[in-house]
């Protein structure tokens, strides 16, 4: 009982904090997005959680001998679990950037997971002002599930993870979505899928005039001002006649941002296929920002959305805002 109330209050206090979940897999891409996360989460009101998801050790595939036997044997030799090195390297990057300090308090936590001898482990670093950096080594059946489960423990404002390569064909994606797509579709918070994520080139926000996209504009305004990134707006009209309409959409968004004290660098209204135009324009920016499609359930599964397609085919990083 006390444990539940504890987590409840913990989650209560987390609401006011800006919490970023960064998925680390040892790739350069992941460390680059960690640097971005560090910049975005540099205030005292922001927490950064580094997550490495390790596949669960299960024995059905290993011919009936549980992998735990091999794992226990490895530990007996004094070998570390996979992932610890990657998380430590991530922490060193944060130290180098000054986003973490040597004098922070360190706590270690461990929780048991069914079917795995070692379970989840995390190291939490807290400074005097309550800013938290967490290194978490999590066990899950697959990486996407692990990231989504971690969100449930959060909650988080933003998940950052590396892209899993460009477009693999619609059928394949629908049937067996890659990690990034799966997380971007199922997560209940904003997801940034990093592709050579650099800091300098600002955000490009897509709007279609709907209330939902205006909400995206407002939310990204917050995210962009966290990392002090310049903001631009794009709206794509399907045909020439509705170009005026697109212009008004851009204008509305600009006003919305002006009300929040944020200046728009470029305001683009153009005609064409939304997905292609957005991807082309996006090459000049660090991040393309889109709202999650309004479609729910089966419709979303079958029809997909502009957001999903841009996510799969863009050359730059893409953020789906919720």
């Amino acid at each position: 009982m006390s444990k539940i109330t504890k987590t409840m209050t913990e989650q209560e206090t987390r609401k006011d904090r800006f919490r970023i979940l960064v998925s680390i897999d040892g790739s350069e891409e992941a460390y680059q997005s960690l640097r971005y996360a560090a910049k975005m989460g540099n205030g005292v009101d922001a927490d950064i959680v580094l997550l490495y998801v390790r596949p669960i050790d299960q024995g059905l595939r290993s011919g009936g001998l549980q992998v735990r036997i091999a794992r226990e044997n490895m530990l007996d030799w004094g070998l570390e679990l996979p992932g610890i090195k990657y998380l430590k390297k991530g922490y060193e990057i944060l130290l180098d950037m000054g986003a973490a300090g040597d004098d922070w308090h360190e706590h270690n936590y461990h929780s048991n997971v069914d079917g795995d001898p070692l379970g989840d482990n995390k190291i939490e670093y807290i400074n005097k002002e309550g800013k938290v950096i967490v290194l978490k080594l999590k066990v899950a059946t697959d990486i996407a599930t692990g990231i989504l489960e971690q969100w449930e423990l959060g909650p988080y404002d933003l998940i950052i993870l590396g892209a899993s390569g460009r477009s693999r064909g619609i059928a394949k994606n629908l049937w067996n979505p890659a990690v990034a797509e799966k997380v971007a579709t199922h997560a209940q918070c904003s997801v940034l899928v990093a592709r050579e994520l650099d800091i300098g080139h600002g955000h490009l926000i897509c709007t279609d005039g709907s209330e939902k996209s205006l909400e995206t504009v407002r939310k990204d305004a917050y995210l962009a001002s966290r990392c002090e990134c310049p903001v631009s707006i794009i709206s794509v009209a399907l045909d020439v006649e509705s170009k005026e309409e697109a212009k008004t959409f851009v204008e509305t968004a600009r006003k919305e941002l002006a009300a929040m004290d944020i200046e728009v660098v470029n305001a683009i209204a153009c005609v064409g296929t939304p997905v292609d135009k957005i991807i082309d324009a996006g090459t000049d920016y660090s991040v393309i920002v889109l709202s999650d499609s309004g479609k729910k359930g089966l419709k979303r599964l079958l029809l997909g959305s502009v957001a999903t397609k841009v996510l799969q085919e863009a050359y730059t990083s893409v953020m789906v805002v919720r």
């Binding site: 540099n42 130290l95 180098d96 950037m97 000054g98 300090g101 040597d102 002002e129 800013k131």
Partner: peptide, 10 residues
């Protein structure tokens, strides 16, 4: 390595 600029904002 502690950088106050990043953890203490104006």
């Amino acid at each position: 390595m502690f950088n106050p600029r990043l953890t203490k904002d104006p």
